[in-house]
Every structure is written in C-alpha cells, then in structure tokens.
Design a protein around this nucleic acid. Structure first.
Lengths: 183, 183
DNA sequence: TGGTCCATGTAAAACGTTACATGATTCC
DNA sequence: GGAATCATGTAACGTTTTACATGGACCA
C-alpha cells in the first residue's frame, strides 16, 4: 500500500514525470523505497484515476512528450491521513542472510568471497549517500524543517550502510579462520 | 524466489511440519525472512510437487496429524545451485522513512511520538535476539561451523537493531528542537 | 552502426495479504 | 465457558517482477 504514499511524498516535494520518478526511486528516494518503472507507471495511472494527482502534458521537440504529475488537494489529504497512522516494523527479507544460514553447505572460501562482494556494494552505496550529504546538506544547522526531515532519512541510510560494513568485516574475520584451518 | 530457499535451508537444519516452520519464521528464522503460514503451506505444496521435499505423515492421538517434511537430494542440489550464485543488495522498503520524508506535513510532536513507538518496537526485538544469543550461543568459541554461520545471522540482527536504536535517538533529539521552538 | 538516454507503456507469472474454514485439546 | 495451541488448508485479491514493445535523438 505504501508505494502510492512514497510516490505522493516524492511528487509533493517536486512534480515530475514517471520517468523522472523512476530515476529518483533509483537514486535519492532509493534510500527508503525501491520501485521499477512499470510499477510507477501503473501506480500513477491509479492515482490519477482516483484524482489524487493530475497530469499536464509537456510538449518537447527533440524528445518524446512527457506527462508532468502534481499532487491534488485530495491527494494531499489522502497522504496526510496515512501520515497520521502509526506504522509497524517493516518485515525483513534478506537473501544474503538466507545464504549465510546455509553457508556451511558450501566452501568457506566461496562464502568469504560473497561477503567481500557484498561489502563492496554497501561501500559503494555509502559513498553515494555521503556524496549527497556533502552536496545537499553541507550546513545542517541552517536546514528548514522539511530539509531536516529529508536529512534524517539520509542519515538513516548512512548509518545502515556503516552497520553493514562493520558486520561484513566481523563476519569475514570469523570465516577467515575456516579458510585457514578447516575443521 | 527466495522463500523456497529460506524454507529449504530451514528444513535442512531440521525437518518440520508447515506449522512448525511458520512458528520458526515468526521466531528465529524471522531475523532474516518473514512469511505467513498461508505462504508456507503453498510453497511446501510446490516444493513437494517439484520433488525437492518429501512428506511423512505422523499420526498423533491427542493432536491433529501432521506432515513432516524433509529435503530430498534434488532439493539439496537445487539449494546449492542457488547458494553458488552471488546475491545483490536487497531492496529497501521502509514505511517509517517514507513517513519521515513527508514528516514536515504533520505536527513535529506526532512525529516524535511515532519515533518513540518505533524505538520501543526495535528495543523489544533486540531483547529477543539477545535472549537467543544468551541461550543458544553462550560459548562462541565452541561453535561448529554450522553453528557459527547461524550465529553470524543473529549477530546481523542484533547489530541492525542497535543501529535503529541509535538512529531513533538521533532523530528524536533533532526533532525535539521543533517541538520546543517551532519555526 | 551500435549503444545509451529519453519516455511511455502492456501482459503474464510469481509472490504476498486478508479473510474464511474446521476441529480437537488444554489451560484458566 | 472462553481463549489459546495444534494443525491444515482454500479463495480472492493485490502487489511485484520479468519480459516484451516502441521509437527518435545523440554520441563515438
């Protein structure tokens, strides 16, 4: 149910086309939600049918035309009703941990490689987040309320990734002993 | 696709009925995967049809009969093929962060309350994880390889929850200033 | 001429959620 | 007498993923 809310929050921040949204969900919005362009287009169609957003067609000459979506009053009300409800913990689903749980079935060496690979991916993401922090939030004291809220979501992403790096290091160090001296 | 792998990994660790699995997914397996009993029964039927698991009916007098599932050779092969493939980062979807991103639309006071509530939920989960750590992993040095792998998944859960607590505290402290002196 | 970017979508299959359904036993 | 536990499922619906589809502009 929350994809619609993620889209509304993002559109409220800045009216955009489906294509733009898809890119944002792949970038900055990506630190709290993930969605493919197919999902986004379908959800936009639904939100428009429900009058929560309106589209304005922008004619472009060197490029395909695009539809610029904005949130309506009804959409804002719909979003605020959701904001007023309390949320529960999000369910955990992590392929890597399933794999690790059954890790004893494969070579310790292969598992260490996999963890190193994961560590690299998290490292890359952390660098991206930190670049956003440096570029868009250089002076935290000077932020508006809205800016502060957005900054806090970014901080969450940064802390998460740092946690991952720390855990990967711990796990790699532990498994290293199996590689050196297998039981 | 990974629900099947999570079930196989868990069944390989210990043959069980659907009911038992559902409870484990709600408990210890819950720190890396989440699934309802309906999903589990459906997936078990599929896995049995694919010959990845076999069922043995256990007659019980004071209780309903149950089907005890075990992983077949074919199931083990299927799982190991998956274990050999490298996994990508798991997509992030977090209601709380969507809410926070649009947090400027509601009262700072309401947002602080919500964060306190979340903090409590994470705290509860952390205590559960630590209880598992104390009960089942009192001597980390003495663990078998299999035990070590399972311990590492638990450590991941613990670190995560500690990260959440830290972030919640940071966020609450930041928002507190809005409650005391609104812009 | 081959790839990436812009821009929008459809369709089918897999996966997840919610509600419904049953029935004995055990504990308070 | 009522609730929880054990134990299994079905059905409808909603969401997500994967694959397919189009077509011009721009760059090397």
């Amino acid at each position: 149910m929350a994809l619609s809310h993620a889209i509304l929050v993002s559109l409220l921040d800045c009216p955009s086309s489906g294509y733009d949204l898809a890119k944002r969900f792949d970038g900055s919005v990506g630190f709290f939600w993930d969605a493919s362009h197919q999902q986004i287009y379908r959800e936009l169609a639904k939100l428009e049918a429900a009058n929560h957003i309106t589209a304005e067609t922008i004619e472009q000459d060197a490029r395909p035309n695009k539809k610029l979506y904005s949130v309506t009053e009804s959409g804002k009300t719909f979003l605020m009703e959701w904001l007023d409800q309390s949320v529960s913990l999000c369910p955990i689903k992590d392929d890597l941990l399933v794999k690790l749980y059954g890790g004893y079935l494969i070579e310790p060496d292969a598992m260490v490689k996999e963890l190193r690979q994961q560590r690299k991916l998290h490292q890359t993401r952390l660098v991206e987040y930190q670049a956003i922090e440096d570029r868009f939030f250089p002076d935290v004291e000077a932020l508006s309320q809205k800016g502060t809220y957005q900054y806090l979501t970014l901080r969450n992403g940064i802390q998460f990734e740092q946690g991952w790096l720390k855990w990967c290091d711990e796990a790699i160090a532990t498994l290293q002993s199996f590689v050196e001296s297998p039981e």
